[in-house]
Simulated scan of single mutants.
Amino acid sequence: MTTLLVFADKEDAEEVAETLAERFPDIGAPRVVRETLAGEDDGEDAQWLVVVEGLGERALAEADALAEEYDGWREQG
């Protein structure tokens, strides 16, 4: 299952991706991807996604806590 963690700031997304990779090495390296909001012309309005595959229950709870800590949220892909 693909999990998407959404953040407003690129640095936050990168830090969360690194933290998840360190804590759960079996998931591999999460990808950080820029997503421009539909209908927005300004690049400042982009969201940053951390794309993670195969999170178990414990890792998912950790991802939720990290997302909340960095003012982000989780979406299932």
Rank of each mutant, 00 (worst) to 15 (best):
residue 5 L to G: 14
residue 72 G to N: 11
residue 33 V to Y: 05
residue 11 E to I: 11
residue 23 R to G: 03
residue 24 F to V: 01
residue 44 E to A: 07
residue 60 L to V: 03
residue 69 E to I: 03
residue 36 T to M: 13
residue 77 G to V: 11
residue 13 A to F: 05
residue 26 D to M: 00
residue 34 R to P: 10
residue 27 I to G: 01
residue 76 Q to W: 09
residue 8 A to F: 12
residue 39 G to F: 10
residue 62 E to K: 02
residue 75 E to H: 08
residue 31 R to K: 15
residue 18 E to R: 09
residue 51 V to L: 03
residue 12 D to V: 04
residue 69 E to A: 13
residue 54 G to T: 08
residue 5 L to V: 11
residue 74 R to E: 12
residue 26 D to V: 00
residue 34 R to S: 12
residue 64 D to Q: 11
residue 62 E to S: 05
residue 61 A to K: 11
residue 37 L to M: 11
residue 64 D to S: 06
residue 52 V to I: 12
residue 17 A to Y: 02
residue 26 D to I: 00
residue 77 G to I: 14
residue 37 L to T: 14
residue 61 A to F: 01
residue 56 G to E: 05
residue 3 T to F: 05
residue 35 E to R: 12
residue 17 A to R: 02
residue 5 L to H: 09
residue 37 L to R: 13
residue 32 V to R: 00
residue 53 E to M: 05
residue 2 T to W: 09
residue 76 Q to I: 08
residue 17 A to S: 07
residue 38 A to C: 00
residue 64 D to P: 01
residue 20 L to R: 08
residue 45 D to A: 02
residue 41 D to V: 08
residue 2 T to G: 10
residue 15 E to V: 14
residue 73 W to S: 13
residue 60 L to C: 06
residue 1 M to K: 13
residue 9 D to R: 13
residue 56 G to N: 03
residue 9 D to A: 15
residue 64 D to H: 15
residue 47 Q to E: 11
residue 21 A to Q: 09
residue 5 L to C: 08
residue 66 L to H: 15
residue 34 R to D: 09
residue 45 D to T: 02
residue 49 L to R: 09
residue 60 L to Y: 14
residue 18 E to F: 04
residue 41 D to E: 04
residue 31 R to C: 08
residue 28 G to P: 02
residue 5 L to A: 15
residue 25 P to H: 00
residue 67 A to T: 07
residue 67 A to H: 04
residue 63 A to W: 02
residue 9 D to N: 14
residue 30 P to T: 01
residue 48 W to D: 01
residue 38 A to F: 14
residue 72 G to H: 10
residue 54 G to S: 11
residue 52 V to D: 02
residue 77 G to R: 15
residue 36 T to I: 03
residue 1 M to Y: 06
residue 42 D to W: 10
residue 75 E to I: 04
residue 4 L to Y: 07
residue 38 A to M: 11
residue 31 R to Q: 14
residue 48 W to S: 02
residue 42 D to Y: 06
residue 23 R to L: 02
residue 50 V to M: 10
residue 64 D to K: 14
residue 69 E to T: 15
residue 35 E to S: 05
residue 41 D to T: 10
residue 49 L to W: 04
residue 37 L to K: 12
residue 23 R to A: 08
residue 24 F to C: 01
residue 74 R to N: 03
residue 35 E to W: 07
residue 69 E to L: 04
residue 40 E to Y: 02
residue 46 A to Q: 07
residue 65 A to D: 07
residue 49 L to D: 01
residue 32 V to W: 01
residue 46 A to R: 06
residue 64 D to G: 06
residue 23 R to E: 03
residue 38 A to L: 05
residue 10 K to R: 13
residue 32 V to G: 02
residue 46 A to F: 06
residue 32 V to T: 07
residue 38 A to R: 13
residue 19 T to N: 11
residue 11 E to R: 13
residue 71 D to H: 14
residue 6 V to S: 10
residue 52 V to M: 03
residue 33 V to K: 09
residue 57 E to A: 12
residue 77 G to N: 03
residue 60 L to G: 06
residue 55 L to C: 06
residue 60 L to D: 03
residue 57 E to S: 11
residue 39 G to R: 06
residue 55 L to V: 02
residue 7 F to T: 05
